[in-house]
Nucleic acid binder design. Structure first.
Lengths: 195, 195
DNA sequence: CGCGCGATTGAGTAATTTCAAATCTAGTGG
DNA sequence: CCACTAGATTTGAAATTACTCAATCGCGCG
């Protein structure tokens, strides 16, 4: 699948510059994996060793509480990264699970390899630092949204920021991501702008 | 204030190792600033150039919505870092403000200098990467808390994780941080464990 | 054609907010 | 040392919002 390789290269090049040699070396540390809808990449309790980068498809990471309710922490579609970072960085058993909403193709890289590459290739290290900074800011924005916007406004914001995501994700899951019951979401977005 | 210098050194040494020489060099890029309660370090609309590290005191970063309500994104006490990262990284005007809850002493470092130091000293770069990773995971945890815990449980969790913070921060501000009205918080924590 | 999943609707209930007023507290000046 | 004041906290009652549970609807897939 050379198109995947090219897709990954472009993904890096959007943020940092790499020689062909460097990229080849980086590429050699990734492995392709294919999953069907509803398959798990990470299940609660497991050891987590990989970062996943989505080449094709749609996944989610979520936490299931004592009462069995699922709460969605993150979606990931093409070009997004996903894992259970708490578990990955701190060598803890996973408290989250990651599974596929659509059939998906991902590239996996070991956290250990990622660290090794970060030491060896400055641009690679930089890439992840920038990604992490952006992600951090994104999470802060989401917290503000949860703190002071009502469900309707949260939905509208998501509509603005990620219109594609909205079309692909079942409403039930969206509701969980926004922190609303699916029934409430159903009622709320009917009056939302643009529908 | 050599005690501050020593405090900063310890802060770095907890995570990475630095030679005395390296630390001296790093130290030379920080400037000490003192603020009184209610003074602002960052005001909405300003350009943001600095990271702040708290040596003494207590600060908050917050967003004020259209209706004038303040929503607290972060507190920062001794050894914590604070700024408006969205503005800092993307060279945008601040959407947050940062101000003092108590009289405070902070060390300021320019983001440009931080980047320069990160290029020059690998351990320094590593320090921030690890901080950022930890912070990222922390924000994810907070999102989960906001998504599926009721106010009472959010308060109890904060009590577990940051008991010192709870004692220093006015309840009104805590309420804003937890996403509850101050009246509700007042009612809720009266039945909370340990009171 | 029918099953099953996802989405919607309705009715009643629970949790939280809002607004207003009362109470408490720490710091200030006399 | 005490009275005073501003800020913070608490209380009460009504209003609102969102949730739960149950039933119905709609549609794509086999």
């Amino acid at each position: 699948m050379d198109s995947i390789k090219e897709q990954l290269r472009q993904h890096f090049l959007q943020i940092v510059s790499l020689t062909d040699e460097e990229f080849e070396y980086i590429w050699s540390h990734f492995t392709i994996r294919k999953y069907k809808k509803r398959q798990f990449l990470i299940q609660e309790g497991e050891t987590v060793k990989y970062h996943f980068w989505v080449s094709k498809g749609l996944l989610k990471s979520s936490y299931t509480d004592e009462s069995g309710k699922e709460h969605i922490l993150q979606f990931a579609m093409e070009d997004w990264w996903i894992s259970d970072y708490l578990a990955l960085y701190n060598h803890m058993p996973a408290s989250l699970s990651v599974d596929c909403i659509e059939d998906s193709e991902v590239l996996a890289i070991l956290e250990d390899d990622r660290q090794k590459l970060a030491r060896e290739i400055h641009a690679f290290s930089n890439f992840f630092l920038q990604k992490k900074n952006g992600g951090y800011v994104g999470l802060q924005q989401r917290i503000l949204l949860l703190l002071f916007k009502n469900p309707r406004e949260r939905y509208e914001r998501l509509q603005q920021l990620q219109p594609r995501l909205l079309q692909r994700v079942p409403k039930t899951l969206l509701a969980s991501y926004l922190g609303v019951s699916r029934e409430s979401l159903s009622r709320l977005y009917q009056g939302a702008v643009g529908l």
